[in-house]
Simulated assay, not measured.
Amino acid sequence: MLLPLGGRRIYYDLTGPEHGPVVCMTHSLMSDSGMWSEQMPTLLQAGFRVLRLDMRGHGGSDPGAGGDYTMQGIADDWAAALEALNLPRVHYIGLSIGGQSGQPFAIYHGDKLISTMLIACAPSSGTVGDDTSVWNRGMNAVRKANSVEPIADEVMGHFLSDATKKSRPGRWKQLRDTAAATTPAGMLGGAAAIMNYDFTAQLPSVRVPALALRGAQDPDGTEPAMRQLAKLVPGARYEEIPNANHFCNVDQPDAFNRIMMGWLDEQRKLT
């Protein structure tokens, strides 16, 4: 479904019992809400209502006016969507740029959150796994082709392990095709946001229960960065999933779902 938002439209999917606790899920750069398919049956069976949002220029969402995105602006999109859908408070789960934008969401819109899982991300652009030259090379390739297609295979090497590519080629192709179909404006705007953010000073002000989670083989959400994130947020916990790359929820769905449900059950007992 499409939600009008400041002259553009945000795609959302809201599924589950009307009065169930709401889990809001946001995805990585060059992906969309379909990256959470492995989590949907588990969440719905447990009685949660699940809101999945597509970021600007990704999936079914319009890229909006030209120019770079900011993490604050993306977080404001999430907050505006909750307001428009009359969802006062949610459990937030964000991976990669979903986790990066989840940080200003928790800092500036913490009243809308019950808890947050920040996955495969970092507290600042200075701690993102790839160096600036890698990002610049990828962005230049997208500009030259006016398409994300030229970098889709390389991106998938970060997203999923070789084991998943071999054992689940259909799922790998789904995610690869989604990456390739990302609008150039969405990729370039999001990449600019990833290269220019720093919440290290503000994260100690977060008062929302937080779990920092990563795949142990993730080249982008590195262990030092994720441990730093957990240390900066008061009371936050750090966990990692073995044999998983950036999309740890797809590489190791059973392990991810156990951690996710354990976390959500813990929050239910506290509220």
Rank of each mutant, 00 (worst) to 15 (best):
Y11C: 11
T15I: 04
G16E: 13
G16W: 13
V22S: 04
C24A: 15
T26Y: 04
S28P: 00
L29F: 09
M30R: 09
G34S: 13
W36F: 03
E38I: 00
M40N: 10
M40V: 01
L43A: 07
L44T: 02
A46G: 09
G47K: 08
R49D: 06
M55W: 06
R56S: 01
G57I: 03
G57N: 05
S61K: 00
D62N: 05
G66S: 14
G66W: 08
M71A: 11
Q72F: 13
W78R: 02
A84R: 14
L85S: 06
R89Q: 13
S96G: 13
G98P: 01
P104W: 04
G110Q: 02
K112I: 06
L113M: 09
S115Q: 05
L118V: 14
I119F: 01
S124E: 09
G126M: 09
T127E: 15
V128C: 06
D130V: 13
D130C: 13
T132A: 15
S133H: 12
M139F: 11
M139S: 15
P150C: 04
I151V: 14
E154M: 10
V155T: 10
V155L: 14
V155D: 00
H158K: 09
L160I: 02
K165A: 14
K166W: 12
S167A: 15
P169S: 07
G170A: 11
G170F: 05
W172T: 07
A179I: 04
G189K: 06
A191R: 03
A192W: 03
A192P: 01
T200D: 05
A201H: 12
L203W: 11
P204M: 07
P204R: 06
S205T: 14
R207T: 14
A210M: 13
R214G: 02
G215K: 00
A216F: 03
P219H: 02
P219S: 07
G221Q: 01
P224D: 11
A225I: 12
P234C: 02
E239D: 09
E239N: 06
I241L: 09
N243V: 10
V250E: 03
F256R: 06
W263E: 07
D265W: 06
Q267H: 09
R268Q: 12
